[in-house]
């Protein structure tokens, strides 16, 4: 130590030892906690359980968690939950299928032709700024209060995100690929199949994720308008009788449906975009 005469080490042998390095205060969030995501929900459940057990939460406002579980068991046992779930799922799927198909076709037409864009893009953008749910009064006047009104409302909610993201993805396709398609003399159909649709697929799948959420969202609302089946109807009925346990079961089912369908779309996304994953790896 002392033999080195490095000018940048002012410390000598007889000088006091250097002070230990003071570590800087850590400013980032730190290391991840295992199962950290579960802390909030578990806390919420604990507060709910304790509140119900001590009588601090009135069961007329919110049933105890164990009551909710028992009610769910009863509803499943007598088949009512499945029946309502099926009715809801059928509506959501019908609206989703129609909306996705319409959004996709509109996006392709509007993306491939200037005339199509002029005709289609404006109305969709206008529709975009009007919440689907605000259209319900008009849709009831036009289509009544039956199934068609419900499915059309869901369709309209689904159509917009699918259109927007697919159109965006389509327009983002590199023009060099269009040039390539011309030099290998692809026809319109082959161009659509090999360049346009695969190129717009990432955008479409992103739109689909928003669309699935939109479908469940619209479902909640339309099922409280004069429905005679479905999870929303079940909850509406429970409200009349003050059955908060049934309402909570309905909420949980909606939540699970949303999570499940989003996971499903993400799975499809990962499968369909293998060529992109190789970039990330």
């Amino acid at each position: 130590m002392t033999t080195t005469e490095a000018p940048h080490t002012p410390a000598r042998a007889d000088a006091p030892a250097p002070a230990p390095v003071r570590r800087a205060r850590r400013l980032g969030p730190g290391r991840p906690i295992p199962f950290g995501w579960a802390i909030g929900p578990a806390l919420l459940l604990a507060v709910w359980s304790i509140g119900s057990a001590t009588g601090w939460i009135d069961p007329r406002n919110l049933s105890a968690p164990w009551d909710v579980v028992r009610t769910a068991g009863d509803l499943i046992a007598d088949g009512r939950l499945q029946e309502h779930l099926w009715a809801s799922a059928r509506r959501a799927l019908a609206g989703l299928a129609l909306g996705v198909a319409a959004g996709l076709v509109l996006a392709v037409v509007s993306g491939l032709s200037r005339l199509g864009e002029g005709v289609i893009d404006g109305p969709v953008q206008i529709k975009r700024s009007i919440p689907s749910l605000a259209l319900i009064p008009l849709l009831i006047l036009w289509f009544g209060i039956g199934e068609s009104m419900k499915i059309i409302t869901i369709t309209l909610g689904v159509l917009v995100p699918v259109y927007l993201h697919t159109h965006n993805g389509l327009r983002a396709i590199d023009s060099r690929y269009v040039e390539l398609a011309e030099t290998v003399r692809l026809g319109r159909a082959a161009f659509l199949r090999h360049v346009v649709l695969p190129g717009a697929l990432p955008g479409f799948l992103l739109g689909l994720r928003f669309a699935v959420t939109a479908a469940w969202l619209s479902l909640v609302v339309v099922e409280q308008v004069n429905a005679t089946s479905g999870i929303g109807y079940m909850m509406e009925l429970a409200r009349t009788y003050g059955q908060t346990d049934v309402i909570v079961v309905g909420l949980v089912v909606y939540g699970l449906l949303g999570l499940l369908s989003d996971g499903l779309v993400r799975l499809v996304q990962r499968r369909a975009l293998t060529w992109r994953r190789t970039l990330a790896d």
Partner: peptide, 15 residues
């Protein structure tokens, strides 16, 4: 100028 979403052979026989 290969289509990134098509495998090599599909790029060769494109069209």
């Amino acid at each position: 100028r290969l289509l990134p979403w098509r495998r090599v052979l599909d790029n060769v026989v494109l069209g």
